[in-house]
Design a protein around this nucleic acid. Structure first.
Lengths: 201, 201
DNA sequence: GTCTATAAGGTGATAGAC
DNA sequence: GTCTATCACCTTATAGAC
């Protein structure tokens, strides 16, 4: 953290602050403190809070979304293996960055106008996955299901438990942090089992 | 909206503002404008922004969480019927209040300390549902599954697609609002199908 | 590049008249 | 109960020295 140049120190500090507090809760003073510099320098590197935020948001968004694509293109795996590997790797990614998904969803809900461009820019194309699902249905390996519904189900089962951790912890385990973490860990297998059991013929 | 007394006008305006902007993004001036009154009156009715927020948050939280309990206590329904009715009613509730879940999750993530008390206070007890799941496993009507995982899966499939609407819309339907709404509507059946197909023996 | 100092405007909250 | 006026503080952003 100390052996970074100033720009990287700012970015790291800003990511931390924005993700924890949200855009409107974040404070330039707090970012400066975390980076070990002063406010003026923030504006020297990134002209405004808004600009700095866009850099952070874009990075966070890139990290999370296009990860979907790679695995489903592989031809050495059958459809069920793809689902299993995808859910495992995606849950691992979320565990490593547990506050990013909630951050993205919240900012997209409130500041949506200015962020729409960034989403479009990333241009995730799920058509290959859709047609792959349709092919499996034709082959009779899975039951008929709307591709969009299946994709949504997969993502929901991976992401939601982490976003809802503060409440899930209390409701399901009476606040026991360790039990909740164990539960999240075992979801790496559970989610794939749940999905495959549901669609396999 | 106009035939309400002042206190109710404030509450309605405040819910709108807090849910849309989050706590730190919400402005007392904006709430006053929406309610058609001035700032001073806000403080006359609710001493501070914090107090007003707690009222709104508690109401939102109450609306969403304990809804789980009722249906699973009914003895005239088998387990699969309970799941079907629960998912349908819960998704209906979310469709009617689409911004509440994201609001709760975000505030719980950032302001967690002061809100923990409110969650505890509501004291949702899922033990009856857990033991019901275990009983079904013993009876052999569903495959073995960790009750907490199943409960989490059910909630995730209901809630996530609405919280993630801004991004799901773009990624799954290239921004087509109507197609996304249709997809959400059809989830009232889809989610129950998906779950029951996964666990039924 | 990095700092201190300060501007310019916003924000929650209160005082006091009616 | 409801208003106007105002306080005290905070926040982003910039000016200017080094």
């Amino acid at each position: 953290m100390d052996n970074l140049n100033t720009e990287d120190k700012i970015i790291q500090a800003a990511e931390n602050e924005f993700v924890e507090q949200g855009y409107s809760g974040a404070r330039m003073q707090s970012i400066a403190n975390k980076a070990g510099i002063n406010k003026a320098l923030l504006h020297y590197y990134f002209r405004s809070k808004e600009k700095l935020f866009e850099v952070i948001f874009k990075t966070a968004f890139k990290l999370f979304v296009p990860k979907i694509l790679g695995i489903f293109e592989r031809e050495d795996l059958d459809f069920f293996e793809k689902i299993r590997i995808f859910t495992q790797e995606y849950i691992n990614l979320i565990i490593k960055n547990p506050h990013i998904p909630g951050f993205i969803l919240h900012e997209l809900g409130t500041k949506k106008s200015s962020l729409a461009a960034i989403i479009m820019e990333q241009a995730i194309n799920v058509d290959p996955i859709k047609s792959q699902i349709e092919k499996e249905i034709e082959k009779g390996t899975i039951r008929p299901v709307m591709p969009e519904q299946l994709i949504m189900n997969i993502i929901a089962l991976c992401v939601f438990p982490i976003v809802a951790a503060p409440i899930g912890k209390v409701v399901l385990f009476k606040g026991d942090e360790k039990k909740y973490q164990d539960m999240i860990q075992s979801r790496k297998d559970e989610v794939a089992d749940f999905i495959i059991n549901s669609i396999k013929l």
